[in-house]
Design a protein around this nucleic acid. Structure first.
Length: 355
DNA sequence: AATCCGGGGTT
DNA sequence: AACCCAGGATT
């Protein structure tokens, strides 16, 4: 074993034990709870995921509770956290563990990979933390720390890069305490070796950090550029009947917000006036469902809702109708439905104004 | 190998 | 506006 390796892991773990945050999932080795936390923290900051973790543990103390819950309940608790496929896969995996595995949680890296929504990172995290299996985690923090300390310039989002960093991380892992080591590396990336302007002068590795020596800290890690965002224009038809009922549709098929609910949506290629809106095919279909008495634009200025790779420009049309079919729901029950943040923001704003 | 999938924070 | 976040699935 290279002397360098021992130095790195010992220094790192020492730093971790002195600087780690107290987090609820660090007080347990219950694989269910570790799994839950790891899924929630995928592409999600600890501060953002934490309140959701607490809500889920409270609502679903065991994998059986989660499995038995209706999907609508799970999605409602997940509302606002994003990447909703995580919630759907979590629920499906809970069914699998509860029923097929009779509640016996997968207890090694290989079997963990069979769970929906569990990839190399998550399987490694659970296996190392819960079962002491030496599988190296490679998340965004690990890419950053290792690329800098060891001066690796391979793009982290290339196939070669993923392979190379996993191999390097695997070589460095402390097999005696893999869970602690993995968390130490991630914590160091999250709290010290940060993306922008890290404090290299005081860093525990600055004597040996390749990036620091070569003045490449701001250039590492290398990442291939992604394509630009697409713009979309959403016209939401907020139906209001005299009985204070409205219409919600569940999004199905591909694309964003699968299984979440929304008002009837008419998408247009650009921002449209009322006259232009009424010419759209989607509007004709909509107007066959309800008897429109009046229609007024709620927000002249579009709400801009930014997703990772789409910018949504949304306008809400308040549509008074005389009749509504039995698919309508009371407006007061809308809060029971999982909806995208874009919709939740409108509902909150509209409700205040309306009452 | 590329692309898609949210929402929020930082710079 | 661009980048990032305890990534994974799909095409």
């Amino acid at each position: 074993m290279p002397e360098n390796t021992t130095f790195f892991r010992n220094k790192l773990i020492t730093w971790y034990l002195e600087n780690k945050r107290e987090l609820p999932w660090r007080k347990t080795k219950d694989p269910y709870r570790i799994w839950l936390s790891e899924i929630m923290l995928q592409q999600t900051r600890v501060e953002q995921g934490l309140p959701y973790y607490l809500k889920f543990v409270d609502a679903f103390p065991t994998v059986f509770h989660l499995a038995e819950a209706p999907q609508k309940t799970v999605l409602k608790l997940w509302q606002g956290l994003g990447y909703y496929s995580r919630a759907r896969n979590l629920h499906a995996a809970a069914h699998y563990i509860s029923e097929t595995l009779k509640g016996e949680f997968p207890s090694n890296y290989k079997d963990l990979l069979n769970l929906k929504g569990v990839g190399d990172y998550t399987a490694s995290a659970i296996a190392s933390i819960c079962y002491n299996e030496p599988q190296a985690v490679v998340d965004g923090n690990v890419y950053r720390v290792l690329s800098r300390v060891f001066g690796v310039e391979t793009p982290i989002n290339s196939t070669a890069g993923k392979k190379e960093f996993k191999q390097l991380a695997q070589q460095l892992i402390d097999a005696e305490q893999p869970g602690t080591y993995n968390q130490a590396l991630m914590e160091f990336g999250a709290r010290y070796c940060v993306p922008r302007n890290p404090n290299c002068e005081a860093c525990i590795f600055n004597n040996r950090c390749e990036a620091y020596k070569k003045n490449l800290v701001s250039a590492l890690p290398v990442k291939l550029k992604k394509r630009k965002v697409k713009k979309r224009y959403f016209n939401y038809m907020v139906v209001l009947s005299e009985g204070k009922r409205t219409l919600l549709n569940q999004r199905t098929g591909k694309g964003i917000w699968q299984q979440l609910y929304e008002f009837p949506l008419i998408e247009s290629g650009k921002e449209v006036s009322e006259k232009e809106l009424k010419k759209l095919e989607g509007f004709k279909l909509f107007s066959e469902e309800v008897n429109i008495e009046d229609m007024v634009l709620y927000n002249e200025t579009s709400v801009v809702h930014k997703l990772s790779h789409q910018h949504l420009f949304a306008r809400f049309w308040i549509v008074a109708v005389s009749e509504i079919q039995n698919t309508g729901i009371p407006f007061s029950e809308i809060q029971n439905y999982p909806v995208p943040v874009l919709l939740q923001n409108f509902i909150s704003d509209f409700s205040v104004f309306k009452n």
